[in-house]
Write a protein that binds this DNA or RNA. Sequence first.
DNA 1: GTAGCAAGTGCAAATCTTTCGCAATTAGCA
DNA 2: TGCTAATTGCGAAAGATTTGCACTTGCTAC
Lengths: 138, 138
Amino acid sequence: MAEQHELREKGLRLTPQRELVLAAVRELDHATPEEVAERVRLTHPGINLSTVYRNLETLENVGLVQHSHLGHGGATYHAAEVLTHLHLVCGACGAVGGAPIEVAANFVNTLADDYGFKTDVTHFAVYGTCATCAQAEL
Amino acid sequence: MAEQHELREKGLRLTPQRELVLAAVRELDHATPEEVAERVRLTHPGINLSTVYRNLETLENVGLVQHSHLGHGGATYHAAEVLTHLHLVCGACGAVGGAPIEVAANFVNTLADDYGFKTDVTHFAVYGTCATCAQAEL
DNA sequence: GTAGCAAGTGCAAATCTTTCGCAATTAGCA
DNA sequence: TGCTAATTGCGAAAGATTTGCACTTGCTAC
Ligand SMILES: [Mn+2]
Ligand SMILES: [Mn+2]
Ligand SMILES: [Zn+2]
Ligand SMILES: [Zn+2]
């Protein structure tokens, strides 16, 4: 038995569209479904937006992809293996910064110990004002 | 000079719709625009949904109301004066718990000191798994 | 290899949520 | 008591996401 493709291992059929959606998510880092579609269209112009939505959902169900919320609007998608940083979103300029997850370790532990709550700090962004904008406000 | 209505103090016209929208937000605690509209309709059946949206925006601009994001979808509105707790949203059962802001004080300070980022911990919910659901998973 | 079947796709239409244009109404001021 | 600009209601528009359905295609069993 030869080694299986990662999608087949998850019990999914291997279609060009599905492979390309996964590849696009991996290349892009927090991309919207529309952005994923654009990327896929570079090599597969015919792909339908609803196919992208359906595959993102499927890939999320098997744990290859995850979504998070960076702004007031819709979700953005990450490859599951790289979701290892916090998103710092500036409400003033819209910039999305990053910070290592460890920054939140203490906070996460407190919530676990005091509330029994297991936090996924990457699902929602951390909202506030970035250094540049905070400076400008003075 | 008599004391002014709080809306007039903010430079806003006093309309029945606007007063009712504010009252509804205060009574409901994190309500969607649609829920606010429903509540207002109890006493003012004719109110239009777009009036609710416009008033929520107006009230937010003058600081009487704030929105935050508790789920994957749209925003929910709080009276500004009560937005003093974190929201702990369980991805498994949907429950929305609360925790005092102080729980995040350390986290907020770290982000300020190390990244110059001024965090508003109430804008996005803290996402994860509640104690009950974490228990059930075992 | 080939046939059969279920999963996946494209397309168009349906939903849902939020925003907008505009004419009619109304609050606040003179 | 009027004037004027802000506000409202209404319908339509704009986006974003989902859905139904006929067609295609990947995988499995023969
Ligand atoms: Mn927001
Ligand atoms: Mn989500
Ligand atoms: Zn900024
Ligand atoms: Zn739960």
